[in-house]
Design a protein around this nucleic acid. Structure first.
Lengths: 291, 291
DNA sequence: GCATTTATCTGACTTTAGTCAGATAAATTG
DNA sequence: CAATTTATCTGACTAAAGTCAGATAAATGC
């Protein structure tokens, strides 16, 4: 049984290795060795500081230096000293380099589009890919404070609202659910934290400051593709730590019994059920935790 | 919208590329260059004929020859002429080579197990991986005749029965559904075809010879992970071609209206609905097609 | 301000990968 | 059985990737 599961993962590994190899081949068809192509790409993606580039591509200093020299000679990139620290250098694409980078991007996009085009259930395939992406890159998920009104926060919140609507079988409206004043989810009153994998939003949580010593946890959401990896616990810990750092000693939250995974997590993390403390239409369960 | 989908696929591509690279690194840690490791692995997997090896690994004759010489010098493999054609050679692992191969296998298995271990919903992750595997390797799916009693056929048939039970909300029993005499699904009376991707069963169909000029199509099944790629149509075409080749001019089949994808495929492929022609408990729709 | 650290570059290598034109020997073809 | 084809090997390359010991120049620490 277990061996059968391993086999499935290894079959998966084999087929993606082939796909990765095919993409590299299509890169090589541009006549440039893979090393140079990778550097050009990384610069195009925004890695401009040479030490960042080196870390990202895991290249030796000497090797990177030579590859940069080569791309410079081709007129694809420029390097100049970092004005803040003239020991280090910054690389950037020239107009020609940008053109070449765009061609590589287009090759990648085309491969992706081809995979998608021959599949009738695009949604299902993409969801499957997201699950795998998150499972493989769990270590790279970053938890960071974000403005409640920022782009990434908005993405999280609308996914959160859509899911609640589905789970609670009603039209959930953020506005009707004590949508906080922006200032309440921002230091010094509160905070809003998002978890992301690159630019893919995988979770969020808000701490809404409603008084000096207490606050409310709101908008706790984990992307469907990211479930089962223990992120919700990490998310809640992050929220509690942030609250503590803001001088808050009591947290409370409202939730709905239909969200059973969340409810069992709260109980499991030392939250205790309390009486209803608001008149919001959606929640039917209320919790509190002393920090 | 479309760009967003492309982005999701490319995020996927990036994370699997990292994973593929990490596996290769762990192979390199055995102190052998990747080329040699790949050859050793391929031999371990059963590619023994040198020309097969070359095709599988896409290596130049000279390069493969040198890599083999290196592995031979390390005492990991042996080559001997093919007794049937002494121009060609056969490679095999020595005891030491088998040991080394097993270590590579173990490294791969461990990476797979690690991914699995940190995920709570193993089933969901594995299903996602299967969907991706099939989507990426669609070209490699082989349709071939198989014995109705063979291992791969049995896997298909039990998956088929499990799915019918679920879809028809009852305990489906192959035995109660006109389970054919083995000889009826074998030439010269009929045939049984499976579609597989490596050793992963992705579909099956049987042609049950019930008379000289007519036959029944039975057990048409496509694995859930393989849906949306147009395999069902290919499967049915294969069955019809096989029937024609056996001198059959009329095909019929029974099905259930709950299997709506299959029903619409039949209509779409020129099958016409007919009267009930048996007393099986499961079907409620009956079709016929003149070849 | 002088020693140390940091970031990068250069030169001189080695290893790995890949290419290609013969050479060799065993089938196959007519 | 001679000519051709097929399968592999060898030698002589080239290109790409990677390593490592200085060199250089700018920041930093004390």
């Amino acid at each position: 049984m277990h061996q059968d599961e391993i086999t499935r993962i290894r079959n998966f590994g084999r087929s993606v290795a082939v796909e990765v190899g095919a993409l590299e081949d299509s890169f090589l068809n541009r006549g440039r060795p893979l090393g140079a192509a990778r550097v050009l790409n990384a610069i195009g993606l925004g890695y401009e500081n040479l030490s960042e580039l080196r870390a990202f591509l895991r290249l030796d200093t000497g090797l990177l230096s030579r590859l940069l020299r080569g791309l410079e000679a081709e007129g694809l990139i420029e390097t100049k000293p970092n004005p803040n620290d003239r020991r280090s250098r910054i690389a950037s694409l020239t107009a020609n380099g940008k053109e070449e980078f765009d061609i590589y991007e287009k090759l990648s996009d085309e491969r992706a589009a081809t995979i998608l085009a021959r599949h009738k259930h695009a949604r299902r395939l993409l969801d499957a890919m997201d699950i795998v992406t998150v499972a493989l890159s769990r270590e790279d998920i970053a938890f960071e404070e974000a403005d409640y009104a920022s782009g990434i926060a908005t993405k999280c919140l609308s996914a959160f609202a859509a899911e609640l609507s589905k789970r609670l079988k009603l039209e959930f409206d953020l506005k009707k659910s004590g949508d906080p004043e922006l200032s309440q989810m921002k230091p010094p009153h509160g905070t809003f934290v998002v978890a992301r994998l690159g630019d893919m939003p995988v979770g969020c949580v808000g701490v809404k400051g409603t008084g000096v010593h207490f606050a409310e946890v709101k908008r706790m959401w984990i992307a469907p593709a990211a479930r089962g990896l223990g992120l919700a616990r990490r998310m809640m810990t992050t929220a509690e730590d942030a609250a503590r750092a803001l001088g808050i000693d009591t947290l409370r939250l409202d939730t709905n019994s239909a969200l059973f995974e969340a409810v069992s997590l709260y109980r499991n993390m030392g939250w205790t059920e309390i009486e209803r403390f608001n008149n919001d239409p959606y929640p039917d369960l209320f919790f509190e935790k002393q920090l």
